[in-house]
Design a protein around this nucleic acid. Structure first.
Length: 270
DNA sequence: ACGAATGTTGCGGG
DNA sequence: ACCCGCAACATTCG
């Protein structure tokens, strides 16, 4: 569900609602959600503190609280919903931050894969994650050096968060369609020119998706009932059996890098 | 009823 | 030590 554009959409929509709010307490309803603390210890640690900023790194959402950071990963079905204490809460509520003014930030998650951690710095994230797609440090040279020894499919590289942070299954397929590369093509067979195209396609697609507030296919939403519009601009993802808009051949669905993968067998070559 | 689902991690084998 | 594929996590939906 949420990849970089969806996470960015959540961050932008939450910012005006929760920035500078004072925390009163925290409730946890599914213990595994909060992986670094007990509900009580986190609640004590952050009560009376202010959420001073909300930002994104890869697919992670980062709330700065005092000199520390609450780091949230939505995984497949996690959602952050800002609401008033009088409103009905989801039956999938896993964690709740209560603010002094009686408003609340709810973390809901049907499949319970989402995780929330509290850290004193962001070193663990920066060690784990590769370069941001919009960073000027993302160059064809960087990718070439990272990929030259990798024989696995290029799609698995796009999904590998330690190389580029933020791309998921939908946008990986869209990027590869745009640059006409077969998802199974061995990563070390892409030359500098192709890698340059890969980077610009990544930036263009992710930026357009952010502008459209993400892609809603199964159940991404933000702000309670707001949905992303990038679904109408998808070229291959979820288009199994439809005609490629470039060559009119039939889009195929296969499995690549362990994930459902859509591509055009004519446009996208090995 | 079975299989798959937009994510990540940890495991085993190479 | 790196690389790669696969199972596991938990629930819903078709």
């Amino acid at each position: 569900l949420p990849e970089l554009p969806e996470v960015e959409t959540v961050v932008r929509s939450l910012k005006p609602k929760i920035q500078n709010k004072i925390i009163k307490s925290v409730n946890v309803y599914w213990t595994k959600t909060l992986s670094t603390h007990t509900a009580n210890s986190l609640s004590k640690t952050i009560q009376n503190k202010i959420i001073s900023s909300i930002s994104r790194r890869g697919k992670y959402i980062i709330l700065q609280i005092g000199n520390s950071f609450l780091v949230i990963h939505l995984r497949m079905t996690g959602k952050l919903i800002y609401q008033n204490s009088s409103e009905t809460q989801s039956s999938h509520l896993r964690l709740k931050i209560n603010f002094k003014d009686n408003s609340e930030l709810h973390f809901t998650d049907i499949r319970k894969f989402g995780r929330i951690e509290f850290h004193n710095n962001l070193n663990f994230l920066n060690e784990k994650l590769g370069i941001e797609p919009f960073s000027n440090q993302l160059t064809a040279g960087y990718l070439y050096q990272k990929l030259c020894k990798r024989n696995g499919p290029i799609k698995s590289i796009l999904l590998n968060q330690s190389i580029i942070a933020g791309i998921g299954n939908i946008y990986a397929d869209e990027i590869l369609w745009k640059i006409r590369v077969h998802p199974q093509k061995p990563a070390n067979q892409l030359d500098i020119q192709k890698l340059t195209k890969l980077i610009s396609a990544t930036q263009i697609i992710l930026q357009k998706a952010i502008n459209s507030m993400g892609t809603t296919i199964i159940n991404f939403s933000f702000d309670k009932e707001s949905y992303g519009n990038y679904g109408s601009q998808l070229k291959v993802f979820n288009k199994n059996g439809e005609n490629c808009i470039r060559c009119s051949d039939i889009i195929i669905k296969t499995k690549c890098a362990g994930r459902g993968t859509y591509y055009c067998p004519t446009c996208q070559t090995m």
